[in-house]
């Protein structure tokens, strides 16, 4: 399992692996928002938590179609399915690698982008916390979507259509934590809900992902 994780990370770092692409996409979204809504700093400050969450979510989505498709095309998934690793472990490790290469950089870079959007002072801490707690769920749910569409020629758009509705609860609670934090309100309830959703998806969804992957491999 650790070998698989290291291999995935190595692949992401090498040429063409797409490491950092999500981050650049996040930066571009953050840059475009003021052009779309105007430069008033109080307006930007009020929408900053939501925009940053949406940007992170879309950046996550962007790299999902490569998550399993590359391994599918070159036959690696066939070989992994006949290897001693259970497929549940394979999809979990894949999700973890996706989070380390996409989610984690977003979490770390979010405060910088927060500055660009005039995020109020107390919001920075809660933005980072909410992203750190919420983005693992985005990776795990995204892995499920990638497993569903792995056999399809042009699965990218369908993948977005399937995954985005599943992101609704995470987005609502995540953005709520960041928004309340920015306004200096109490954040306990949405943060607990966000953490609950993340833990539940990590615990349960790999079974569904492995099941649909098995169906797709046959």
């Amino acid at each position: 399992m650790i070998a698989l994780l290291f291999r995935d990370l190595k692949l992401a770092m090498r040429a063409g692996g797409g490491f950092g692409l999500g981050l650049v996409f996040f930066l571009i979204v953050t840059t475009l928002v003021p052009f779309a809504v105007g430069p008033q700093s109080d307006l930007l400050a009020s929408i900053a938590p939501g925009v940053l969450w949406l940007g992170a979510l879309l950046a996550c989505l962007l790299s999902l179609d490569r998550l399993l498709a590359l391994d599918w095309e070159d036959g690696t998934l066939d070989l992994l399915a006949t290897a001693p690793l259970p497929l549940e472990a394979v999809v979990s490790v894949k999700a973890l690698a996706h989070w380390i290469t996409t989610g984690l950089p977003l979490v770390l870079a979010a405060p910088v982008f927060g500055v660009l959007l005039n995020l109020p002072g107390p919001g920075f801490f809660w933005l980072v916390v909410s992203l750190a707690v919420g983005t693992p769920a985005l990776s795990v749910v995204g892995t499920f979507g990638a497993a569903l569409t792995v056999g399809l020629k042009r699965g990218g758009l369908l993948l977005s259509l399937l995954v985005l509705p599943l992101y609704v609860p995470t987005l609502i609670f995540g953005a709520e934590v960041a928004r309340r934090g920015a306004q200096g309100m109490e954040t306990g309830t949405p943060l607990l809900m966000l953490g609950g959703i993340t833990l539940a998806t990590i615990a349960l969804l790999p079974f569904a992902s492995a099941a649909v992957l098995r169906v797709n491999l046959r």
């Binding site: 509705p165 599943l166 609704v168 609860p169 609502i172 609670f173 709520e176 309830t189 949405p190 809900m193 959703i197």
Partner: peptide, 12 residues
């Protein structure tokens, strides 16, 4: 997830 969304939306 639909049920989760229902509660999330209510909360929101």
């Amino acid at each position: 997830f639909a049920i989760l969304s229902r509660y999330a939306v209510n909360f929101w």
